[in-house]
């Protein structure tokens, strides 16, 4: 995988997930569509939480 691809794969995937989530509940009606929306939009938030938890614990941040 090229350096450019490696660098942008996650940002693009998370942005796509966000946009998908934003549109899903708007276009679909309730039920499964809402669930898809919540999961798609929670993905970036969970990613943030994982990255913050996984940071090396030696500093004061």
């Amino acid at each position: 995988m090229s350096a450019f691809r490696r660098q942008w794969l996650w940002p693009v995937a998370l942005a796509a997930s966000t946009v998908f989530g934003l549109l899903t509940a708007l276009i679909g009606e309730g039920g499964l569509w809402w669930l898809l929306c919540w999961v798609a939009l929670a993905t970036p938030l969970v990613t943030i939480a994982l990255c913050v938890v996984r940071r090396r614990p030696s500093s004061g941040l």
């Binding site: 990255c51 996984r54 941040l61």
Partner: peptide
């Protein structure tokens, strides 16, 4: 992706 460096300055973190 997503690395938060904590072995340098506070600014870098």
């Amino acid at each position: 992706f997503g690395v938060i460096r904590t072995d340098g300055s506070r600014w870098r973190s």
